[in-house]
Design a protein around this nucleic acid. Structure first.
Lengths: 220, 220
DNA sequence: CTGTGAATTATTCATTTGACCAGTAATCAT
DNA sequence: ATGATTACTGGTCAAATGAATAATTCACAG
């Protein structure tokens, strides 16, 4: 990582002669934010650069200018998606530093549910690539997921040390946990049509977090 | 439902002068089967009729001929998806008729996990439509999901009567259950790349079923 | 101020996509 | 058998899509 010189650092700025303008960074951000939503809703092939540009309120040619092509825009979107996740959890973990191990485990589980409710794109993004093992999925695992899985395992180790974790292999617990926590928010519109309940309300998030916690942890 | 005259009955055959040929039904089936996979992998906009036709080994024009347009093909695919689900569970429920209530609950939970492992398209199909509340999602809920949800609730009622169910509202338990059971199979390729475990193996399915059962049911 | 490089726009291009249609082959009722 | 009806084929069309290009506006370093 080069120390200074503009954030994101996605375009190769080793040959740059001028600092990127604030205006450019703003549109870049705008495009990436919109792209995250579009890709997670429509998938890579389904999301069109024109639609993304229109939603973002920018000219379509700017996508080529800032990201070279659709593939690179997709990668930039994934980078942001996981950067958000990392930042959010890094802040939390610091705040919970002085809590004891057992409560920290509970806080992590509950906060993951809360995060999933605020970022339903996360799971949907994975679903778009997760079945067919194309090159994008490989890139996603190698560049982002593989770094997070060990962190999850560390949490499981703590929970086991406190005798509070349900029995099962790490892999199964991981996907059961992610699925149980996120699916209701990834399918929020369906949920509301089907049951009348909007899962995005504070009350509903809290209820779901409580349920997921109870599912993962054994009764004391 | 008209009693006789050809299965599926999707095209308006009220004016038909001849019974549909076996050949036609075969290609129809072939197209629908392929469409289920394509739609669940790529979404409605991402899946192209040409790609579906090529995968199915039929001429692209046949899709228009048999289904009028892409939208109708999508509906036919959903119809088959849920027909498979209904048939499978109807057969199981009959086989478990003489089992006592508690074991029947356990069998249903475990079998749902098994079904999700054999049909990872199911959840993926929902995910493709479940966030944005478009007309397709509405159609899906009204024509299929709304009929299944009460059946799930009946199972929950049985489980509660036996004091074996985790505490929580029906809606939350529903989505936590579906997500916990299906996600690992919907993301099977990701799972294998990330952890080295292929979730589709018999051993893995059994382990996951056991875990999901333990997550939903309280220890006796 | 000013000139240079970056950001943005408008336009174009080769492909692709869903749908359509005319023509042919297969199948069935009689 | 044979004529009517359905199933299928190959090709075409207008609309769209990702990308490229040229022209224009903008911001900043000197």
């Amino acid at each position: 990582m080069t120390p200074a010189r503009g954030p994101a650092s996605k375009p190769d700025d080793s040959q740059r002669k001028r600092r990127p303008q604030a205006r450019a960074l703003a549109t870049r951000d705008q495009i990436v934010s919109t792209a995250i939503v579009c890709f997670s809703n429509l998938g890579f092939e389904g999301a069109t650069t024109r639609w993304i540009a229109e939603q973002a309120g920018v000219n379509q040619g700017l996508i080529t200018h800032h990201f070279k092509n659709k593939e690179e825009l997709w990668k930039a979107a994934v980078d942001r998606l996981f950067a958000n996740f990392r930042n959010d959890f890094a802040a939390r973990m610091e705040a919970w530093q002085d809590a004891d191990r057992a409560t920290r485990v509970r806080l992590i589980i509950r906060h993951f549910v809360r995060y999933a409710s605020e970022h339903p794109e996360q799971l949907r993004f994975m679903m778009q690539e997760g079945l067919n093992s194309g090159p994008r999925m490989q890139w996603l695992v190698e560049n982002h997921l593989s770094a997070h899985y060990p962190q999850f395992q560390a949490m499981l180790r703590d929970a086991r040390a406190e005798n509070m974790l349900i029995e099962g292999d790490d892999v199964h617990i991981f996907y059961a946990f992610v699925g149980a926590a996120s699916t209701i928010f990834a399918l929020s519109a369906e949920c509301e049509h089907l049951t009348g309940l909007d899962p995005a309300t504070e009350k509903s998030i809290e209820a779901h977090a409580k349920l997921v916690e109870a599912m993962l942890l054994v009764t004391p």
